[in-house]
């Protein structure tokens, strides 16, 4: 069985054939709707909860909102494995930063670290080769392999939102939307966006936008998770589809 793999892949030191393309094509992906906004007192991050492998929903209650420091969080879209690895590395660096410098890192620092990883490894995080197992026909498809939105609150700068799209560029934004579902809500967001919203208005905006994204994007679905970041810290919210995303609202 093993011998037949001599035709493909690279022979590692331990004699195991490693073939990245075979691994990549079976990958679990976050075909996603994610977003983050600035509001009067901080930022709000939001995401759906669907993880798919092809058309199969591998996880219907995924948490795509990841904490990388006390009040710096990110929304992950693209390959679950890649973005988790990136978030873990950034989390480690921010942790070290706060210890060494005796000061919490700013959102800028988190953005810079995320960007460095996404930019320098863009070749690994971008093209995904889809191969039909049975015909052997492969085709390259662009897929959001690491589209990350970073949102954070720090006492000096208040709330901030940064977006890192595919190539690894870093964009500061008033609000940011990402993932496959975001393409359906550019109009909704542009029409409904206002600066300096209250927390209540901000939550309405994010929830309303994600509700539309979930409605139109087959790769997005499940529950809506939110994280509100302010001077008071981080608070999670949850909204369920069977109540038309009206509740339960703030969890702990």
């Amino acid at each position: 069985m093993v011998a037949s793999h001599g035709l493909t892949g690279m022979l590692g030191e331990d004699g195991i054939h490693v073939d990245m393309n075979h691994l990549k094509s079976g990958e679990v992906n976050l075909g996603t709707s994610i977003m983050a906004i600035n509001f009067k007192d901080g930022v709000i991050l939001g995401a759906d909860s669907r993880t798919t492998t092809g058309a199969y929903i591998a996880n219907r209650v995924t948490d795509k909102l990841t904490q990388v420091h006390d009040t710096i969080w990110c929304c992950r879209s693209g390959s679950a494995a890649d973005t988790q690895a990136v978030a873990d590395i950034v989390s480690y660096h921010l942790n070290m930063y706060s210890i060494v410098n005796n000061e919490a890192p700013s959102t800028q620092v988190a953005g810079a670290l995320f960007q460095e990883l996404c930019y320098e490894n863009k070749d690994m995080l971008r093209l995904v080769l889809f191969v039909n197992w049975y015909t052997g026909i492969g085709h390259l498809i662009y897929r959001c392999s690491a589209g990350i939105i970073i949102a954070g609150y720090d006492p000096r700068h208040g709330g901030q939102v940064y977006s890192i799209p595919l190539g690894g560029s870093l964009h500061k934004q008033a609000y940011s939307i990402g993932g496959s579902g975001s393409t359906y809500i550019y109009g909704y967001c542009d029409a409904n966006w206002r600066e300096n919203m209250t927390e209540e208005e901000g939550i309405q905006f994010v929830r309303g936008a994600l509700r539309e994204a979930i409605k139109w994007d087959g790769s997005s679905g499940g529950v809506i998770r939110l994280v509100v970041l302010t001077a008071k810290g981080a608070q999670r919210h949850l909204y369920l589809p069977d109540t038309d995303y009206t509740g339960p609202g703030a969890t702990y």
């Binding site: 600035n38 009067k40 810079a112 700068h157 901030q160 500061k172 600066e195």
Partner: peptide, 20 residues
């Protein structure tokens, strides 16, 4: 307000998202 070197984009015009 510190910018990230090479930054593009500027966030919201008013309120949060800048220097407090």
């Amino acid at each position: 307000e510190l910018a990230v070197d090479g930054q593009v984009g500027s966030g919201p015009q008013s309120g949060a998202g800048g220097k407090v």
